[in-house]
Computed example of a mutant assay.
Amino acid sequence: MSTTEPTVAVVGSVNLDLVARVREFPRAGETVLGSEYEEAPGGKGLNQAVGAVRRGTTALVSSVGDDPVGDRVVAWAAGHGIDVAGVHRAPGLTGRALITVAPDGENIIVVAPLANGALTPEHVAAELDRTRPDVVLAQHEISEAALRAAVEWCRASGARFVFNASPVRSVPADVLAASDPVVVNAAEGLALLRAAEAARPVGEPGSRSAVREGGAWRPADVARRLLELSPSAVVTAGGAGAFVADAAGVEHVTTSTRVVALDTTGAGDEFAGVLVAELAGGASLHDAAGAANDAAGALVQVPRERR
């Protein structure tokens, strides 16, 4: 691990985002016209690395295609100060994300992983050996094998592993057990809890009661229940802030300023990137989540083309 400036490695995806703004989201079988269109570098891994590098040295471990888009996104990341030596070039196309944004800033995203699927466990381990980060952040837009390589490197090296379990899919119990914290929104956290409950053998002790309010799970209760799976958890709740859970209990983190969202794309990634950079710098989980919440709140108030 580093002996000077705290460092972060983000093991994750890189995409080109294709963004269209619409007056309202289309219903099934419906076509709507977009009012604006733009293309920009993105992907959860790259977005999170951008959030982290503003606060400390950050390396990106990922895979892009050998197409011109790959050249473009790598140059863009390097221009933001990210260590891109660990970005693998694979034959084929760089990943794409198809994004529609409504007037209230909400979005719908479809990701085509493409070259992100070429990120191998061997490449992940070699790059983490090279950079020796204090904190490693990974998400779910890469393969389980690449994800597990990051977990195993952290176990062997004593680094802190942080997992943004998004997009939601099956997560091995040992990966969640190594995540300190697991970072999700309330819907993603609930999906993890339901999957864990379904996998629990019949008759095994464990909490199976749902704590509900108005027919929906409260984010604080999701955070508390996630401690059954991980040493700590952070559940983001949009404008309501975030809920931080660890052995000391559950705390609610909010921002003191009013947030008027123009585009929520990338808010969760900004949160995760700032969170790990603050943790690498020695902040407590509560304080790191507070800084991350403020950063995400500031991001959504800026039009994407000005970020």
Rank of each mutant, 00 (worst) to 15 (best):
N185D: 15
A237H: 06
L227Y: 11
E213G: 13
L16F: 04
D104R: 11
G45S: 04
E122Q: 13
V10R: 03
S170P: 05
L190E: 14
H88I: 00
G281W: 04
R148A: 09
G81T: 05
S232H: 13
L227Q: 08
R225I: 04
H80Y: 00
I142D: 13
L285Y: 14
R200T: 15
D263K: 00
Q48A: 12
P219D: 12
H286Y: 09
L60W: 04
G273I: 06
N185W: 13
L193D: 14
L229W: 06
D174E: 15
L147F: 00
V259S: 03
V110W: 09
Y37V: 14
R23I: 02
S62V: 02
V61C: 03
V234L: 14
G273V: 03
T254G: 04
E141Q: 07
R208A: 12
S284R: 05
V8P: 05
K44L: 03
P303C: 07
A289S: 15
V22R: 10
I142S: 08
G268A: 07
V74R: 02
E5K: 12
A77K: 00
A173T: 13
V182G: 10
L176T: 12
A97G: 15
S13H: 04
V162W: 03
E270L: 06
V135M: 08
A199R: 11
L128Y: 11
A177C: 11
E36P: 03
G65W: 03
R23Q: 15
L16P: 07
T94E: 09
T264D: 08
P121T: 10
G215P: 11
L279R: 11
A223T: 04
A280F: 01
Q139K: 04
R55A: 10
G42A: 05
G238H: 08
L128P: 14
V8R: 02
V168D: 09
A9E: 10
V69Q: 01
V61H: 02
V184Q: 14
H286I: 12
A186L: 05
T131L: 06
G56S: 08
L60E: 01
A240F: 06
E38K: 01
L226E: 14
S209T: 14
V135Q: 03
V64Y: 00
S13K: 00
P231K: 04
R218K: 06
G297L: 11
A296E: 12
S230I: 00
R23A: 15
V136Y: 04
V32W: 01
G43Y: 03
E30C: 05
L262Q: 09
A20M: 07
L137C: 06
A126C: 10
L18A: 05
I82R: 01
R208H: 14
E152Q: 03
S166D: 07
V136G: 07
W217N: 05
P231W: 06
R96C: 08
V202T: 14
P205E: 13
V300E: 12
A85P: 00
D174V: 10
R194S: 10
E36V: 05
R89K: 07
A240Y: 00
T100P: 00
A196F: 05
D17N: 10
